[in-house]
Simulated scan of single mutants.
Amino acid sequence: MNAEYFQMFARYNQWANNHVIAACETLDQVDLDAPREAFFPSIMKTLNHLLVADTLWMARLRGEILKMGLGDVPWPEFADYKATRTQYDAALIEYVDRLDDAALAGILSYKNVAGVAYATPRNIVIGHVFNHQTHHRGQLHSQLLSAGCPSLEIDMIYFARLKGYSQ
């Protein structure tokens, strides 16, 4: 995988997250907090899990250490979540845009939330960040449908067509 591939994924990630945010904005806070079927039992808890995980991974990529739990809800109000999500997605694009193929091939040493040390190629870690987003956006999609939102067309192919990667 080369740097341009991950740069495209960072932009897709932002685009898909913006669609999720737009759908969430049609709901009130009560609906966002209501119990829903998924691993994280509400829209807000699922949104928070994604942003907590992303925040932890970005810290690791920058050589920082954060103490957060994957079930923490640091952004219980949607407006706070939205502002932080928007900042994070822009920061992820900026970070990935600075990487070259050699940096992507490098090894990232880090500890997980349980304190276990790992060494993983940076391209695998960044790929995981995007894959994790997609995984939980699928759960969010189901939760949003159960809240009465229309289906979201956020598959990668829609982004690729829109941005000229596909014809």
Rank of each mutant, 00 (worst) to 15 (best):
A91Q: 07
H132I: 02
T134H: 02
A79P: 11
A83F: 09
Y81R: 11
R98S: 05
A117C: 13
L144S: 04
D100N: 09
Q143T: 05
A103T: 01
D97H: 05
L140Q: 04
I124N: 11
I107S: 11
H135D: 01
Y118L: 14
R85A: 10
I126R: 02
E94P: 02
Q133M: 07
L104V: 01
I124H: 13
Y110Q: 05
D101C: 00
H132R: 04
Y118S: 14
A102V: 06
A91G: 04
H128Y: 14
R137Q: 07
R85K: 11
A102S: 08
A105L: 07
Q87P: 12
L144C: 13
H141W: 04
I126L: 13
H128K: 12
A91F: 01
L140T: 03
S142G: 09
P121K: 13
R137C: 03
G106I: 06
Y81A: 14
F130N: 03
V113K: 15
Q143F: 02
A119S: 15
Y110I: 02
H132S: 06
L140S: 00
N123W: 14
V116D: 14
P121V: 15
Y81E: 11
Q139M: 06
A147F: 08
N123M: 08
A103R: 02
P121C: 09
V125R: 05
L144A: 09
R122F: 06
H132L: 08
Q133A: 09
L108V: 02
I124A: 13
Y118D: 09
V129D: 02
N131Q: 08
F130C: 04
Y95Q: 01
E94R: 06
A105I: 08
L144M: 02
S109M: 07
S109C: 10
R122L: 10
Q139T: 11
V125E: 06
A105H: 04
H135P: 07
N131C: 10
A114Y: 14
G127V: 07
E94A: 08
V113M: 15
R122I: 03
E94C: 04
L145G: 08
R137H: 01
A147M: 06
